[in-house]
Design a protein around this nucleic acid. Structure first.
Lengths: 340, 340
DNA sequence: CTGCCCGTTGACAGCGCTGTCTTTTGCCGA
DNA sequence: TCGGCAAAAGACAGCGCTGTCAACGGGCAG
């Protein structure tokens, strides 16, 4: 059993291969009954057109690239899921390129992938979406691409973002509303654009309420649980201990909770801890984590949708902002002093 | 700037395109200095051969497929990472196919992907690696494939496995060694082959030590934290409460820990909880989870390596067994009765 | 010096499609 | 009935490579 080609279908349907091609590509000017005959022949032969032949002959590959660099498993998985879902709707295929450990060969590898596979466009996730050099190289290639959560907007490339700063401010205001006055922040990885925004949101809220936001309330983290734990220990060692900690992502919040447990602190009575992202993890730790829901799946879905538009030659909005949501769980509560 | 083709390289190097092709494919019978000239030309032009043209003209595509169906984010991420790492070494590309939500169209979609993209071979992860119908269809297509953790060995398809049963037994024996006598088990998803093996390992250990392994010590879970929590509540409601729980994966263990916290139980004094898989989660919850390290990344790496061998026409061992490891953390300890 | 062999290189067809251009068909009004 | 015209269908080249086979040249035995 040799593989079926367009010639087999054409022969069986009694038409030329070009007509089969037309049916395949949903082109007009094919009579309804001809179309039906062709479709029946395709079904009867279980015909599957060759991606490679189509890509070589035509200009498009029906392939969308997704590039990422070492963010967390949950993030990558959510992004992939969203992008795959949208691709399926348009009969596209997702081609995934991990840049993990590529370091300075990164740009070359991404471009090699782009050139070899002829992807029609690219979805770029953070932190690559803030890599100016990469983006510039993509632009020079005139390859359509969409950014997820870039640091700053890039001309000509639509972005899908959420309002990190407003969300962080919201979270901090929620903590202030509970009665906290000393709210420490565990900052995110300095190379990630969102880190600055989230820290800024925390500062916004404190200053708006006339509270201090001094350096003793800030500890640098690196988006990992280990760094969160360390940062939390540092913050909690201060003379005037914060009664609440806002970690700029859930992993660091989990690390902070570990630190709290190590110090024998009862959560949330003696210490409130909040995170950011609402990963799966947030609901699995104890106490369940108050956090900001970041709609990663939806952002990836939307980004892919925008890319589809670009590939078709349609316009796409420069910035698409999706809503976040404050998710209150059990890791936060009023400070003990107010209870006593 | 139009894209470079093999003709450009040939012209610059002053050879025929066939010679460039030979260099590209590491074929012998190219004189060293000719090879060098061609390589220099390729570098000078930044030439990237077209995947589609190569696949169409040759028989192979340099594409390896990876199929998965809804296991956890961590699992999928680890598998992808391992497979990508091995692919990179052989200059192959990984083509990912998610079967999430495909249900009965699953087999058709996988085969369509295989036929359209002409992947050279497939790495199949659980639970698909136990899908007899899918595997049979792949075999009929004479497509090389390697299974990760299949339920039962499949003739002609190498498998990469770990010894789930021995690992579960080891874990249970460790708990017995701590002094536990009533050890409950939260069984995994009934559709996953490993679930049975892990439960069997638990039973092996208990019976070998002359302990009961009655139905009141078994609760059905579905590999999710929510199901683990429910199962734990059920087990802990028994008249003679178990002093230790063995959850057949980490997510369910996390759910069980949630349940324990809800009941106000102090871990591990009043209750020990152990998991299986050693996902990232295990180190992030409180108390850190005692579990079995499953070498998912390594299994995927190895599976891809075996697939590369198969594609080359070499033999590959029917079964490759990788080592697990008992990872003791703080969620387990001697039962309280022994302390009193 | 001749012929043979092997290592090296090249000419050319064709992989399975799509783009372009041409031909055929069906349908309308006169 | 026929011309005219748009819609439908087909012929054909060629996308960028690899497989096949043929051509070339140099070393070496006879």
């Amino acid at each position: 059993m040799t593989r079926k080609t367009i010639d087999d279908v054409a022969a069986l349907a009694g038409v030329s291969i070009k007509t089969v091609s037309r049916v395949l590509n949903d082109e007009p000017s094919v009579r309804a009954d001809t179309r039906r005959r062709v479709e029946e022949a395709m079904a009867a032969l279980n015909y599957q057109p060759s991606l490679h032949a189509r890509s070589l002959a035509g200009r498009r590959s029906s392939l969308v690239g997704l590039v990422y660099d070492n963010p967390s498993a949950n993030y990558v998985f959510a992004v992939q899921s969203g992008a795959i879902a949208r691709c399926r709707e348009s009969k596209l295929r997702l081609f995934i390129q991990s840049c993990d450990g590529l370091d300075d060969r990164l740009i070359g590898e991404v471009l090699a992938m782009v050139d070899q596979t002829h992807v029609d466009g690219l979805v770029v996730t953070p932190p690559l979406s803030s890599n100016a050099e990469l983006l510039e190289a993509l632009r020079r290639r005139r390859l359509p691409f969409v950014l997820i959560a870039p640091d700053v907007p890039v001309a000509g490339a639509p972005s899908v973002v959420m309002d990190d700063r407003a969300a962080a401010r919201e979270m901090t205001e929620y903590l202030l509303g509970l009665g906290h006055r000393h709210i420490g922040v565990i900052a995110g990885h300095p190379d990630h654009g969102s880190s600055r925004l989230r820290e800024a949101g925390w500062r916004d809220a404190l200053l708006a309420h006339g509270e201090q936001a001094g350096p003793d309330l800030v500890a640098q983290g690196y988006n990992t649980a280990a760094s969160g734990r360390e940062a939390a220990h540092a913050l909690l060692a201060a003379a005037e201990r914060p009664t609440a900690l806002f970690a700029c992502n859930d992993d660091m919040a989990a690390g902070a909770i570990l630190a709290a447990h190590e110090l024998g602190l009862v959560l949330p009575d003696q210490l409130s801890i909040a995170g950011f992202d609402d990963t799966e993890l947030a609901g699995l730790i104890w106490p369940p984590l108050t956090t900001i829901h970041q709609p990663v799946y939806d952002m990836a879905y939307r980004a892919t949708e925008l890319l589809v538009q670009l590939v078709r030659g349609e316009e796409a909005p420069a910035t698409t902002r999706l809503d976040h949501r404050l998710v209150v769980r059990a890791s936060t509560g009023p400070p003990r002093s107010r209870l006593e």
